[in-house]
Design a protein around this nucleic acid. Sequence first.
RNA 1: GCCGGGAUGGCGGAAUUGGUAGACGCGCCUGACUCAAAAUCAGGUGAUGGUGACAUUGUGCCGGUUCGAGUCCGGCUCUCGGUACCA
Length: 703
Amino acid sequence: MTVSYQPQIIEQEVQKYWEENGTFEAQEDFSKEKFFCLAMIPYPSGHLHVGHVRNYTLADVIARYQRMQGKNVMQPIGWDAFGLPAENAALKNKTAPKNWTYSNIEHMRNQLKALGYAYDWSREITTCDPEYYRWEQWLFIQLFKKGLAYKKMSQVNWDPVDQTVLANEQVVDGKGWRSGAPVERREISQWFLKITDYAEELLTSLEDLKDWPDQVKLMQKNWIGKSVGTNIQFSVLDHDPLTIFTTRPETLMGVTYITIATKHPLAIAAAAKNNALADFLKMLDTGATAEAELATQEKCGMNTGLIAIHPITGEHLPIWVANYVLNNYGTGAVMAVPTQDERDGEFAKIYDLPFKEAEPFTDEIGEKITRYRLHDWGISRQRYWGAPIPIIHCETCGPVAVPEEDLPVRLPENVDFSEGIVTLANLPEFYKTICPNCKACAKRETDTFDTFMESSWYYARMACPDQNNSILDDRAKYWTPVDHYVGGIEHAVMHLLYARFIHKVLRDLGFMNSPEPFEKLLTQGMVLKDGAKMSKSKGNTVDPQELLQRYGADSVRVFVIFTAPPEQSLEWSDSGFEGCFRFLKRVWAFSCERVKLFEQADGANDGLNACINKGNLEKANEEQKTIWREMNAILKQAHYDYDRSQLNTVVSGCMKLFNLLVKIPYEGQIENNPLCANALYINHLLIYSGTKGMSLTCPYKLN
RNA sequence: GCCGGGAUGGCGGAAUUGGUAGACGCGCCUGACUCAAAAUCAGGUGAUGGUGACAUUGUGCCGGUUCGAGUCCGGCUCUCGGUACCA
């Protein structure tokens, strides 16, 4: 036992012990309370960054705490391995996305191991593995059979030079990031999942999520955006009538014109006879499809020349096309009330349209209906690096599900990105097939799944990753719901909403007992340096690998836990990090010098525990008793802080305990000073990750 | 634009949720050790005034509620996350 703190040696030794003994491998055990602890799995981008370290350390601290509370803890890990960056890397390095992805996983797995996380590595999942996406394809087919998956036309960003669909991220100032060409909007046929069938349940069951942050529930509620209103019909001269949706029917008498979206049938009909309008609609069709962009555009519109008839007064109202009317909300048409609605007022001013003050309209009109802002989930991607959608298109039979015995529909792996972007539509050997129904020549679907599909059910598969005959088995019912889910606040709406939806679908298929996938949620803040998000382009990155090698995992872990409360953004600080390292050094030196605790803990664990459990303070003097009381107050606070996931103050508590500990007068052997032994033992449980099953920042269990 | 956060010493943050603002750590200052420095250890440290006990002031800005506001309410400013194809 050396007095100088050499974390690399200690950590390697203990990590080896964990691995050889399967310390963190979990089994179903009905005699204990189960605890499924999960951090959002990483995208294998190449290297771990400090944000990952923060995420996984938070979850690990929670997992180890629950383990010490006597629960049957399962903490798995995996790789969210499909996605756009692999294709970009493939273009850049002229390698197949698979190779890049798997070599990144290899490297990052080693980094996670060096950080000493208490993972059950036997449950590791990689979402680009055909054995994983096989069951995702199977699930899609169930949705298809239930009528919950369907195709419809939908807009994408189209790069006219590269002839590819662009992600919103790939559109920079309205231009394609590679070609620089102005982006067009194009309508293509795409697959959707009917998440709107579950909108009401997704909304109401938010109330049952007692251990989710209110902030996240509110964001989801607003995203679902339930509103109660009325459909009102307006006759249109020489055309079919027009239906508008309004949440404010009482403003009906103040309507002075009608605005419709660019894709509205009336706009298209009017444009067919009006070149200027057709040009205007075409002009509005350039630029990205992102909502943030659309909503910040300056309002503009054009009179279609069509006339609507006010249903009460019979007045003639002009129908305008306007860029601020959403195509995919309500009926794509609104009645404009410039005196009541700010946007209508602004638009009316620009185009000199009339304003009209009016008494509230109180008569019954139209039927009360409920609408949601939420729309169906578009899961089609025109990309290579994703799970193929298991559908075969047949001219006579239409879209046919791939028979279950033919799953998985494997993604061809030997693709060549040296000549540019590849999609499955470029690979006849992939898409040429025969119809499973009529055996005629047919074509496979060439779209792949949105990667949110993989991340919507992986937690459940982790309960039974070796199950070859079914998507899930009873082990999923044992382990789910996830008891504590930890991940970035950026996933507050989309990922978590999709996962809640898929969980309910799995429940309805009989695979789950619970209504919700995640019992408790912790949303961590960002990691910043110099007040900005770390990024290579800003040159403000901190590489956890270097820190690991120089200072060991524990200093890194203490730093990310101590420096900020989990939900707030964390500012990197070199000197703050040094402080954490210094603290661990002090603890190590103190224990080596005074009590040689580690030999005792290893060799005579029972004796030490007996000494502690006695809680014998008879020999202690008043000063020692005071210190002992203070220590108990700190421990009580630590438990309180654990329960509310405020882990930074748990570390403060460790430091306070240690500061008290060094103040206790030293009186010879440890056995003569139970106070010292107790306190030191507790402190080791709190901060030291070296001994068997003990961990970083896990408090002593109070009796 | 819309939705949801955040703002407290020189810095990261604490204040158990309306009751002594600044725990813990960093930094800085003083002292011990040292020929000296580093490391380590001990003490101090919001600001202003005072030798001092102490006084005044202080939680982004403006206003309000309350015996009492960092905390609650109204109105802002700046900033971060999301905005349906980044994950």
